[in-house]
């Protein structure tokens, strides 16, 4: 049986604007080469079968499922991953918005969603909610229920259009309790700091 080690490809990839030479088994996908050869583990995988969207990266600006493309076909193409989104230490507006809204809970779907959203907004800066939902329909997220992600993308889109936008109050704090329903139970308002757990011993010795 021929050794698999003989069947490898070497080429130059351009990732996040940086060119680098890589060698890899010829059948390896872009997902594998990004994560294993290039050390760019920001791109995630949830199925390796093109079913979850977690591995999305941009190839020449278009979202692509990196688990489904062979790296050998990537020569001369421009690849963008989540690691290339921030400018220096400054987060991309999409990143900042998703972070601020808690739209990355476990954060595992987040890189794929950020890349898909970036491609959408590049094409349609005025994307509306239904466009966002459509563009991201192939990205599954099990944590968020999707709303915070959509709201984050809307907010970032507004910022990228140069608008002085803030997320609506209900996005950050929920709908105010309807007045008719308000029943005073115990004193709300200012935080009263709770007493230490009374069932436990008080601190012993100087360092508790």
């Amino acid at each position: 049986m021929p050794s698999p080690l003989n069947d490898f490809t070497s080429l130059v990839l351009e990732i996040n604007g940086e060119r680098r030479a890589v060698a890899f088994p010829s059948h390896h996908t872009l997902l594998e080469v990004l994560r294993e050869e290039c050390g760019l583990t920001g791109t995630k995988h949830g199925c390796e079968l093109g079913e979850c969207g977690t591995c999305a990266v941009l190839v020449d600006g278009r979202p692509v499922l990196s688990c489904l493309v062979l790296t050998a076909e990537m020569e001369g193409k421009s690849i963008e991953t989540v690691e290339g989104l921030a400018q220096g230490n400054e987060l991309h507006p999409l990143q900042a918005a998703l972070a601020d809204l808690g739209a990355a809970q476990c954060g595992y779907c987040t890189p794929g969603i950020l890349m898909a959203a970036k491609a959408l907004l590049a094409e349609r800066p005025d994307a509306e909610r239904k466009d966002i939902e459509q563009a991201l329909a192939g990205n599954l997220c099990r944590c968020t229920g999707y709303h915070k992600i959509v709201e984050g993308i809307e907010w970032a889109a507004a910022v990228m259009r140069g608008e002085d936008a803030e997320p609506p109050h209900h996005v950050l704090y929920g709908e105010p309790e309807p007045a008719a329903a308000q029943v005073p139970v115990s004193a709300p308002g200012a935080v009263s700091e709770p007493a230490p757990n009374a069932r436990l011993e008080p601190p012993k010795g100087q360092n508790g």
Binding site: R35, L40, T41, G42, T43, K44, H45, T81, V82, E83, L85, A86, L91, L94, Q95, A96, L98, A99, D100, G102, A104, C106, G107, Y108, T110, P111, L114, L172, Y173
Partner: peptide
């Protein structure tokens, strides 16, 4: 409603999951 402490790492791909 403050930004979660791991928020930045999660949107930059810096969070290390076990397979990373």
């Amino acid at each position: 409603s403050f930004r979660r402490v791991d928020g930045r790492a999660k949107v930059t791909g810096a969070t290390l999951f076990a397979d990373d």
